[in-house]
Amino acid sequence: MASLVAVVVAHDSAAVLPDCLAALAREHVPAIVVDNASRDASAAVAEAAGARVLRLSRNQGYGRANNAGVRAAAGAGHVLILNPDVTLRPGAADALLAAAVRYPEAGLYAPRIVEPDGRFFFQARSLLAPYLTNPGGRLVPPEGDACAPFLSGACLMVRRDLFLGLGGFDEEIFLFYEDDDLCRRIADAGLALVHVHGAEALHGRGASSTPQPGRIRRARWHLAWSRSYVARKYGLPDPALATFATNAGKAALALLGLRRDRIERYAGSAAGALAALRGKRALEREGVGEE
C-alpha cells in the first residue's frame, strides 16, 4: 500500500507538468495525472514522466476530475491533491506525512505555498466563514505549524477514505470554491485544518493552463456562479444580484472605452451571476452531463 499518492488534474498543462512530476518523483510519491481533455501533449508528457494517466474525453471541471483521480488511487492512505504548476520542495511530502502522525485530529493538511514573488500564500478570510472577524483581510502569516480556517486548494493532503466519505469535491462546481467548500465540510465534521510550515511547495500562480481566447471571461463566469452557489449552499446571503449589477455597469463603461480585457472580465462576472440568479447550472454551460 502506498502511504501517499498524488493526484494532478491537467488541462493544457504540458509546459508545467515536467517540473511538477519530477518533484513528486524525487519525493518518491507516485502520481496519477487526470487529463481533462487537454488539447496539448499533457497526457504524453505525463506518461513520459512515469505517471499513471487517466484520460477524460471532455473537460469535467476541476472537482470532478480530482474525484476521479482519488477514486483511482486505490490502496493509498493519503492523497496529495495539487495543481500542475505546483512543485514540491525537498522533504515536503515526508513533512506532510509526519504532520498527519503528529496531528491525528486533523482532516486536511497543506504545505507552506510560496508564490513566484517569494511571498507565501495564507488565506486570511473566506466567504464561507462569516464568523471570522477579519473584514479587511488582514494577513498575519504563521511562523510555524498552525490550525487554519481554510487552506488553498493548490496543494492539499487528505486521508483518502475521509475525502471519499465526505463525497469528495462538490461536483456541481465546475471551477472555483471547491477548496473552500471542502474545507468547510471538513471543519463542520469537527476536524482541524493544519498549515504545515515545514513542508514547502512552489506555486506558479495562473500557469496551470496555456492561455486561450475567452479564458478570462470563462473564468470570471465560473467565479461569479460558484460564489453564488456556495453562498446559497450554506445559507449565506446570495451575492449574485449585487455582482450582476456592479459588473454589468462596469462592462458597459468598458465597452464605451473599447477596453477588451475589462469587457471580458466584467461581462463574464455579470453573465455568471445572472446565470446563478436564473437557476442555471455551471455544468450546463460546459456541456457536462450527469454521470
Rank of each mutant, 00 (worst) to 15 (best):
A2G: 14
S3P: 14
L4D: 14
V9D: 12
V9P: 08
V9Q: 12
D12I: 07
S13A: 10
L17R: 05
L21Y: 02
A22W: 02
L24G: 02
R26C: 02
A31C: 04
V33K: 03
V34Q: 09
V34Y: 09
S38H: 04
R39A: 06
D40K: 10
A41I: 04
A44E: 01
G50H: 10
G50S: 10
V53L: 08
V53N: 11
R55L: 04
R55H: 03
S57Y: 03
R58F: 08
G61C: 04
R64N: 04
A65P: 01
N66M: 10
A68F: 03
G69R: 05
V70H: 08
V79I: 05
L80P: 06
L82E: 08
V86P: 12
L88M: 07
R89G: 00
A93L: 12
L96V: 09
L97G: 05
A99R: 12
P104Q: 15
A106M: 13
V114R: 08
P116N: 01
D117K: 02
F121S: 11
Q123H: 14
Q123C: 15
R125Y: 13
S126M: 14
L127C: 05
L132E: 15
G137Y: 13
R138M: 07
V140Q: 07
V140H: 07
P141I: 05
P142V: 00
P142H: 01
A146I: 04
C147P: 03
A148I: 05
F150V: 10
S152E: 07
G153K: 04
A154I: 07
L156T: 09
M157R: 13
D161F: 06
F163G: 04
F163W: 01
F169D: 09
I173F: 04
L175W: 12
F176C: 10
C183K: 02
R185D: 03
D188E: 11
L191Y: 04
A192V: 00
V196N: 13
G198A: 14
G204R: 08
R205M: 15
T210R: 09
R217L: 02
W221V: 05
W221F: 12
A224N: 11
S226K: 00
R227Q: 12
R232F: 10
R232K: 10
K233A: 09
K233E: 07
Y234M: 04
Y234W: 07
G235M: 02
L236A: 02
P237K: 03
P239S: 01
A240N: 05
A240C: 06
L241P: 02
F244T: 05
A248T: 00
K250T: 15
A251Q: 11
A252H: 12
L256Q: 07
L258I: 08
R262W: 09
R262D: 12
Y266I: 05
G268V: 04
S269N: 07
S269T: 07
A270F: 11
A276D: 06
L277M: 14
E284V: 00
G287Y: 00
E290W: 01
